[in-house]
Design a binder for these strands. Structure first.
Lengths: 164, 164
DNA sequence: ACTTATACCTCTAATTATTAGAGGTCTTTG
DNA sequence: CAAAGACCTCTAATAATTAGAGGTATAAGT
Protein backbone atom coordinates (compact mmCIF):
# COMPACT_ATOMS: atom_id res chain seq x y z
CA UNK A 1 0.00 0.00 0.00
CA UNK A 2 3.02 2.23 -0.05
CA UNK A 3 2.42 3.12 -3.68
CA UNK A 4 -1.01 4.36 -2.85
CA UNK A 5 0.43 6.76 -0.30
CA UNK A 6 2.89 8.04 -2.86
CA UNK A 7 0.15 8.71 -5.37
CA UNK A 8 -1.79 10.62 -2.76
CA UNK A 9 1.15 12.80 -1.85
CA UNK A 10 1.93 13.53 -5.48
CA UNK A 11 -1.66 14.42 -6.24
CA UNK A 12 -1.85 16.68 -3.23
CA UNK A 13 1.27 18.38 -4.46
CA UNK A 14 -0.12 19.06 -7.91
CA UNK A 15 -3.33 20.33 -6.39
CA UNK A 16 -1.33 22.71 -4.25
CA UNK A 17 0.63 23.75 -7.33
CA UNK A 18 -2.41 24.61 -9.39
CA UNK A 19 -3.98 26.36 -6.42
CA UNK A 20 -7.46 27.10 -7.56
CA UNK A 21 -8.37 28.81 -4.35
CA UNK A 22 -9.20 32.38 -3.73
CA UNK A 23 -6.04 33.55 -2.06
CA UNK A 24 -3.86 33.37 -5.12
CA UNK A 25 -6.33 34.94 -7.48
CA UNK A 26 -8.07 37.57 -5.46
CA UNK A 27 -5.98 40.33 -6.98
CA UNK A 28 -7.26 39.76 -10.49
CA UNK A 29 -10.10 42.13 -11.19
CA UNK A 30 -11.66 41.52 -7.80
CA UNK A 31 -12.68 38.01 -8.72
CA UNK A 32 -11.87 34.90 -6.74
CA UNK A 33 -10.61 31.75 -8.43
CA UNK A 34 -13.90 29.86 -8.62
CA UNK A 35 -15.71 32.99 -9.77
CA UNK A 36 -13.21 33.50 -12.57
CA UNK A 37 -13.39 29.86 -13.50
CA UNK A 38 -17.16 29.86 -13.71
CA UNK A 39 -17.33 33.08 -15.69
CA UNK A 40 -14.83 31.74 -18.20
CA UNK A 41 -16.88 28.59 -18.57
CA UNK A 42 -19.96 30.63 -19.30
CA UNK A 43 -18.11 32.73 -21.85
CA UNK A 44 -16.49 29.77 -23.58
CA UNK A 45 -19.42 27.37 -23.65
CA UNK A 46 -22.14 29.88 -24.50
CA UNK A 47 -25.62 28.82 -23.38
CA UNK A 48 -24.76 26.63 -20.39
CA UNK A 49 -26.93 25.17 -17.67
CA UNK A 50 -25.89 25.16 -14.05
CA UNK A 51 -25.26 21.44 -14.28
CA UNK A 52 -22.93 21.82 -17.24
CA UNK A 53 -20.96 24.50 -15.46
CA UNK A 54 -20.66 22.31 -12.38
CA UNK A 55 -19.41 19.45 -14.51
CA UNK A 56 -16.85 21.61 -16.27
CA UNK A 57 -15.39 23.17 -13.16
CA UNK A 58 -15.72 20.03 -11.01
CA UNK A 59 -17.88 21.57 -8.32
CA UNK A 60 -21.27 20.54 -7.03
CA UNK A 61 -24.38 22.18 -8.47
CA UNK A 62 -25.08 23.64 -5.06
CA UNK A 63 -21.72 25.37 -4.96
CA UNK A 64 -22.13 26.78 -8.45
CA UNK A 65 -25.56 28.05 -7.47
CA UNK A 66 -24.22 30.01 -4.50
CA UNK A 67 -21.31 31.43 -6.46
CA UNK A 68 -23.67 32.49 -9.23
CA UNK A 69 -25.79 34.17 -6.57
CA UNK A 70 -22.88 36.38 -5.62
CA UNK A 71 -21.99 37.12 -9.23
CA UNK A 72 -25.59 37.93 -10.02
CA UNK A 73 -25.69 40.30 -7.06
CA UNK A 74 -22.79 42.19 -8.60
CA UNK A 75 -24.57 42.13 -11.96
CA UNK A 76 -21.81 40.22 -13.68
CA UNK A 77 -24.06 37.34 -14.74
CA UNK A 78 -27.77 36.72 -15.11
CA UNK A 79 -29.94 33.63 -15.26
CA UNK A 80 -32.64 32.64 -17.76
CA UNK A 81 -34.88 29.69 -17.16
CA UNK A 82 -35.15 27.42 -20.19
CA UNK A 83 -38.52 27.42 -21.91
CA UNK A 84 -37.94 24.01 -23.41
CA UNK A 85 -37.20 22.35 -20.08
CA UNK A 86 -38.31 24.46 -17.18
CA UNK A 87 -36.08 22.58 -14.76
CA UNK A 88 -33.03 24.01 -16.46
CA UNK A 89 -31.49 27.44 -16.01
CA UNK A 90 -29.06 29.06 -18.41
CA UNK A 91 -26.36 31.43 -17.17
CA UNK A 92 -25.13 34.38 -19.22
CA UNK A 93 -22.54 37.10 -18.74
CA UNK A 94 -23.77 40.66 -18.55
CA UNK A 95 -21.86 43.32 -20.47
CA UNK A 96 -20.15 44.31 -17.24
CA UNK A 97 -19.24 40.70 -16.65
CA UNK A 98 -17.79 40.24 -20.12
CA UNK A 99 -15.82 43.47 -19.79
CA UNK A 100 -14.41 42.55 -16.42
CA UNK A 101 -13.51 39.12 -17.66
CA UNK A 102 -11.75 40.55 -20.69
CA UNK A 103 -9.62 42.75 -18.46
CA UNK A 104 -8.82 39.91 -16.07
CA UNK A 105 -5.60 38.05 -16.83
CA UNK A 106 -5.63 34.30 -17.26
CA UNK A 107 -2.98 33.19 -14.81
CA UNK A 108 -4.35 29.72 -14.37
CA UNK A 109 -2.85 27.93 -17.32
CA UNK A 110 0.53 29.63 -17.28
CA UNK A 111 0.80 29.23 -13.53
CA UNK A 112 0.00 25.59 -13.82
CA UNK A 113 2.45 24.89 -16.59
CA UNK A 114 5.22 26.77 -14.85
CA UNK A 115 4.69 25.03 -11.55
CA UNK A 116 4.18 21.66 -13.12
CA UNK A 117 7.52 21.94 -14.85
CA UNK A 118 9.14 22.66 -11.53
CA UNK A 119 8.22 19.20 -10.34
CA UNK A 120 10.67 16.36 -10.70
CA UNK A 121 10.50 14.52 -13.99
CA UNK A 122 9.28 11.28 -12.42
CA UNK A 123 6.55 13.20 -10.66
CA UNK A 124 5.34 14.71 -13.90
CA UNK A 125 5.30 11.34 -15.60
CA UNK A 126 3.52 9.66 -12.76
CA UNK A 127 0.88 12.32 -12.42
CA UNK A 128 0.09 12.25 -16.11
CA UNK A 129 -0.15 8.46 -16.03
CA UNK A 130 -2.43 8.64 -13.00
CA UNK A 131 -4.73 11.11 -14.66
CA UNK A 132 -4.82 8.99 -17.79
CA UNK A 133 -5.77 6.04 -15.62
CA UNK A 134 -8.60 7.96 -14.03
CA UNK A 135 -9.81 9.07 -17.44
CA UNK A 136 -9.85 5.47 -18.64
CA UNK A 137 -11.80 4.43 -15.59
CA UNK A 138 -14.42 7.02 -16.34
CA UNK A 139 -15.02 5.46 -19.74
CA UNK A 140 -14.94 1.87 -18.58
CA UNK A 141 -18.27 0.05 -18.69
CA UNK A 142 -17.54 -1.83 -15.49
CA UNK A 143 -15.33 0.09 -13.14
CA UNK A 144 -15.03 -2.83 -10.74
CA UNK A 145 -13.49 -4.98 -13.46
CA UNK A 146 -10.75 -2.42 -13.93
CA UNK A 147 -7.43 -3.40 -12.30
CA UNK A 148 -5.99 -1.24 -9.58
CA UNK A 149 -3.59 1.55 -10.40
CA UNK A 150 -0.06 0.24 -10.71
CA UNK A 151 2.34 3.00 -9.93
CA UNK A 152 5.33 0.70 -10.21
CA UNK A 153 5.36 0.79 -13.95
CA UNK A 154 5.91 4.51 -13.91
CA UNK A 155 7.68 5.18 -10.65
CA UNK A 156 11.42 4.67 -10.35
CA UNK A 157 12.08 3.59 -6.77
CA UNK A 158 15.13 5.76 -6.20
CA UNK A 159 13.34 8.80 -7.57
CA UNK A 160 10.87 8.92 -4.72
CA UNK A 161 11.48 11.24 -1.85
CA UNK A 162 9.02 13.27 0.18
CA UNK A 163 10.24 16.83 0.34
CA UNK A 164 7.73 18.28 2.79
CA UNK B 1 -61.19 -8.80 9.09
CA UNK B 2 -64.69 -8.67 7.69
CA UNK B 3 -65.15 -5.16 9.02
CA UNK B 4 -62.17 -3.99 7.01
CA UNK B 5 -63.77 -5.26 3.84
CA UNK B 6 -66.96 -3.45 4.66
CA UNK B 7 -65.13 -0.21 5.22
CA UNK B 8 -63.43 -0.57 1.88
CA UNK B 9 -66.67 -1.14 0.05
CA UNK B 10 -68.30 1.80 1.74
CA UNK B 11 -65.40 4.10 0.96
CA UNK B 12 -65.38 3.01 -2.65
CA UNK B 13 -69.05 3.83 -2.80
CA UNK B 14 -68.62 7.33 -1.49
CA UNK B 15 -65.76 7.89 -3.88
CA UNK B 16 -67.98 6.80 -6.71
CA UNK B 17 -70.70 9.10 -5.41
CA UNK B 18 -68.50 12.18 -5.35
CA UNK B 19 -67.20 11.39 -8.84
CA UNK B 20 -64.49 13.95 -9.34
CA UNK B 21 -63.67 12.77 -12.81
CA UNK B 22 -63.98 14.54 -16.07
CA UNK B 23 -67.03 12.87 -17.47
CA UNK B 24 -69.49 14.37 -15.04
CA UNK B 25 -68.17 17.88 -15.19
CA UNK B 26 -67.08 18.39 -18.74
CA UNK B 27 -70.17 20.36 -19.57
CA UNK B 28 -69.43 23.12 -17.13
CA UNK B 29 -67.66 25.95 -18.91
CA UNK B 30 -65.48 23.57 -20.84
CA UNK B 31 -63.52 22.63 -17.74
CA UNK B 32 -62.92 19.13 -16.50
CA UNK B 33 -63.31 18.22 -12.85
CA UNK B 34 -59.67 18.41 -11.83
CA UNK B 35 -59.22 21.64 -13.76
CA UNK B 36 -62.16 23.21 -11.98
CA UNK B 37 -60.93 21.93 -8.63
CA UNK B 38 -57.47 23.37 -9.12
CA UNK B 39 -58.70 26.72 -10.33
CA UNK B 40 -60.99 27.01 -7.32
CA UNK B 41 -58.10 26.22 -5.04
CA UNK B 42 -56.04 28.97 -6.62
CA UNK B 43 -58.86 31.46 -6.29
CA UNK B 44 -59.67 30.55 -2.70
CA UNK B 45 -56.17 30.25 -1.31
CA UNK B 46 -54.61 33.20 -3.11
CA UNK B 47 -50.85 32.95 -3.59
CA UNK B 48 -50.42 29.17 -3.69
CA UNK B 49 -47.47 27.03 -4.65
CA UNK B 50 -47.85 23.92 -6.76
CA UNK B 51 -47.19 21.81 -3.70
CA UNK B 52 -49.97 23.47 -1.72
CA UNK B 53 -52.41 22.95 -4.57
CA UNK B 54 -51.44 19.30 -4.80
CA UNK B 55 -52.00 18.87 -1.09
CA UNK B 56 -55.38 20.56 -1.19
CA UNK B 57 -56.76 18.60 -4.10
CA UNK B 58 -55.03 15.33 -3.16
CA UNK B 59 -53.11 14.89 -6.38
CA UNK B 60 -49.40 14.49 -6.96
CA UNK B 61 -47.32 17.53 -7.81
CA UNK B 62 -46.61 16.00 -11.19
CA UNK B 63 -50.30 15.77 -11.99
CA UNK B 64 -50.95 19.34 -10.91
CA UNK B 65 -48.05 20.46 -13.07
CA UNK B 66 -49.45 18.87 -16.20
CA UNK B 67 -52.95 20.15 -15.57
CA UNK B 68 -51.57 23.64 -15.00
CA UNK B 69 -49.72 23.30 -18.30
CA UNK B 70 -53.00 22.82 -20.09
CA UNK B 71 -54.68 25.67 -18.23
CA UNK B 72 -51.74 27.94 -18.94
CA UNK B 73 -51.94 27.06 -22.61
CA UNK B 74 -55.51 28.31 -22.59
CA UNK B 75 -54.40 31.43 -20.72
CA UNK B 76 -56.62 30.71 -17.74
CA UNK B 77 -53.75 30.67 -15.27
CA UNK B 78 -50.13 31.85 -15.16
CA UNK B 79 -47.12 30.99 -13.07
CA UNK B 80 -44.71 33.23 -11.19
CA UNK B 81 -41.51 31.90 -9.69
CA UNK B 82 -41.00 33.00 -6.10
CA UNK B 83 -38.14 35.42 -5.59
CA UNK B 84 -37.77 34.48 -1.96
CA UNK B 85 -37.35 30.76 -2.68
CA UNK B 86 -36.57 30.12 -6.30
CA UNK B 87 -37.61 26.49 -6.03
CA UNK B 88 -41.20 27.54 -5.54
CA UNK B 89 -43.72 28.59 -8.16
CA UNK B 90 -46.92 30.49 -7.47
CA UNK B 91 -50.00 29.98 -9.61
CA UNK B 92 -52.48 32.75 -10.36
CA UNK B 93 -55.72 33.05 -12.29
CA UNK B 94 -55.74 35.31 -15.31
CA UNK B 95 -58.71 37.59 -15.80
CA UNK B 96 -60.09 35.15 -18.32
CA UNK B 97 -59.65 32.37 -15.81
CA UNK B 98 -61.42 34.24 -13.04
CA UNK B 99 -64.28 35.14 -15.39
CA UNK B 100 -64.71 31.61 -16.61
CA UNK B 101 -64.63 30.31 -13.07
CA UNK B 102 -67.24 32.82 -11.95
CA UNK B 103 -69.56 31.65 -14.70
CA UNK B 104 -68.98 27.97 -13.94
CA UNK B 105 -71.47 26.40 -11.58
CA UNK B 106 -70.29 24.64 -8.47
CA UNK B 107 -71.90 21.26 -8.80
CA UNK B 108 -69.40 19.52 -6.63
CA UNK B 109 -70.76 20.28 -3.21
CA UNK B 110 -74.41 19.97 -4.04
CA UNK B 111 -73.82 16.80 -5.96
CA UNK B 112 -71.94 15.35 -3.08
CA UNK B 113 -74.50 16.28 -0.48
CA UNK B 114 -77.35 14.97 -2.57
CA UNK B 115 -75.67 11.68 -3.27
CA UNK B 116 -74.41 11.29 0.23
CA UNK B 117 -77.91 11.63 1.58
CA UNK B 118 -79.05 8.87 -0.71
CA UNK B 119 -76.83 6.44 1.15
CA UNK B 120 -78.22 4.40 4.00
CA UNK B 121 -78.08 6.09 7.36
CA UNK B 122 -75.64 3.58 8.85
CA UNK B 123 -73.40 4.13 5.85
CA UNK B 124 -73.36 7.87 6.35
CA UNK B 125 -72.54 7.48 10.02
CA UNK B 126 -69.82 4.97 9.40
CA UNK B 127 -68.18 6.97 6.66
CA UNK B 128 -68.09 10.10 8.76
CA UNK B 129 -66.63 8.17 11.68
CA UNK B 130 -64.02 6.64 9.39
CA UNK B 131 -62.98 9.99 8.03
CA UNK B 132 -62.77 11.39 11.55
CA UNK B 133 -60.56 8.48 12.45
CA UNK B 134 -58.26 9.18 9.51
CA UNK B 135 -58.13 12.84 10.43
CA UNK B 136 -57.14 11.94 13.98
CA UNK B 137 -54.42 9.68 12.69
CA UNK B 138 -52.99 12.51 10.63
CA UNK B 139 -52.59 14.58 13.76
CA UNK B 140 -51.27 11.79 15.97
CA UNK B 141 -47.63 12.09 16.99
CA UNK B 142 -47.08 8.38 16.70
CA UNK B 143 -49.29 6.74 14.14
CA UNK B 144 -48.22 3.25 15.10
CA UNK B 145 -49.48 3.76 18.64
CA UNK B 146 -52.92 4.51 17.29
CA UNK B 147 -55.38 1.61 17.67
CA UNK B 148 -56.93 0.07 14.60
CA UNK B 149 -60.20 1.35 13.24
CA UNK B 150 -63.12 -0.23 15.04
CA UNK B 151 -66.12 -0.25 12.80
CA UNK B 152 -68.16 -2.23 15.28
CA UNK B 153 -68.96 0.74 17.42
CA UNK B 154 -70.66 2.43 14.52
CA UNK B 155 -71.90 -0.40 12.39
CA UNK B 156 -75.12 -2.16 13.30
CA UNK B 157 -74.71 -5.74 12.21
CA UNK B 158 -78.15 -6.11 10.67
CA UNK B 159 -77.74 -2.84 8.76
CA UNK B 160 -75.02 -4.18 6.53
CA UNK B 161 -75.89 -5.42 3.09
CA UNK B 162 -73.90 -5.13 -0.13
CA UNK B 163 -76.16 -3.79 -2.83
CA UNK B 164 -73.90 -4.19 -5.87
C1' DA C 1 -72.40 -1.98 -32.29
C1' DC C 2 -67.45 -1.91 -32.49
C1' DT C 3 -63.15 -0.06 -33.41
C1' DT C 4 -60.03 3.81 -33.65
C1' DA C 5 -58.27 8.18 -32.56
C1' DT C 6 -57.83 11.84 -29.47
C1' DA C 7 -57.48 14.13 -25.37
C1' DC C 8 -57.42 13.90 -20.76
C1' DC C 9 -55.95 12.11 -16.05
C1' DT C 10 -52.75 9.91 -12.94
C1' DC C 11 -48.95 7.89 -11.09
C1' DT C 12 -43.81 6.74 -9.98
C1' DA C 13 -39.14 7.58 -10.99
C1' DA C 14 -35.67 10.47 -12.66
C1' DT C 15 -33.83 15.06 -13.38
C1' DT C 16 -32.58 20.03 -12.40
C1' DA C 17 -31.94 23.74 -9.48
C1' DT C 18 -32.22 25.75 -5.02
C1' DT C 19 -31.88 26.07 -0.05
C1' DA C 20 -30.52 24.69 4.71
C1' DG C 21 -26.98 23.64 7.55
C1' DA C 22 -22.46 22.67 8.88
C1' DG C 23 -17.64 23.12 8.52
C1' DG C 24 -13.63 24.94 6.32
C1' DT C 25 -10.03 28.76 4.71
C1' DC C 26 -8.31 33.38 4.03
C1' DT C 27 -8.21 38.37 5.08
C1' DT C 28 -8.89 42.09 7.87
C1' DT C 29 -9.36 44.33 12.13
C1' DG C 30 -8.89 45.07 16.93
C1' DC D 1 -2.61 36.83 18.10
C1' DA D 2 -7.79 36.60 18.53
C1' DA D 3 -12.04 37.52 16.37
C1' DA D 4 -15.02 38.87 12.69
C1' DG D 5 -16.42 38.72 7.99
C1' DA D 6 -16.57 36.99 3.52
C1' DC D 7 -15.91 33.32 0.79
C1' DC D 8 -15.86 28.26 -0.59
C1' DT D 9 -17.58 23.61 -0.37
C1' DC D 10 -20.12 19.77 0.64
C1' DT D 11 -24.33 16.62 1.70
C1' DA D 12 -29.15 16.29 2.47
C1' DA D 13 -33.59 18.06 1.89
C1' DT D 14 -37.01 20.39 -0.90
C1' DA D 15 -39.69 22.06 -5.17
C1' DA D 16 -41.01 21.73 -9.68
C1' DT D 17 -40.66 19.57 -13.96
C1' DT D 18 -40.24 15.87 -17.30
C1' DA D 19 -40.26 11.03 -19.05
C1' DG D 20 -42.73 7.10 -19.47
C1' DA D 21 -46.42 4.06 -18.87
C1' DG D 22 -51.13 3.00 -18.26
C1' DG D 23 -55.85 4.24 -17.56
C1' DT D 24 -60.58 6.45 -18.90
C1' DA D 25 -63.84 9.06 -21.57
C1' DT D 26 -65.47 11.31 -25.96
C1' DA D 27 -65.87 11.63 -30.83
C1' DA D 28 -65.58 9.79 -35.41
C1' DG D 29 -65.73 6.19 -38.62
C1' DT D 30 -66.86 1.80 -40.30
Amino acid sequence: MKNYEQVLVALRRVIRATDLHSKRLSKHAGLTGPQLLIMRTIRDLGEVTIGTIAENVSLSQATVTTILDRLELRKLVYRVRSTKDKRKVHAHLTEDGADLLARAPNPLQEDFIEKFQNLAEWEQTMILASLQRVANMMNADDIDASPLLTVGSVLKDDGWKEKA
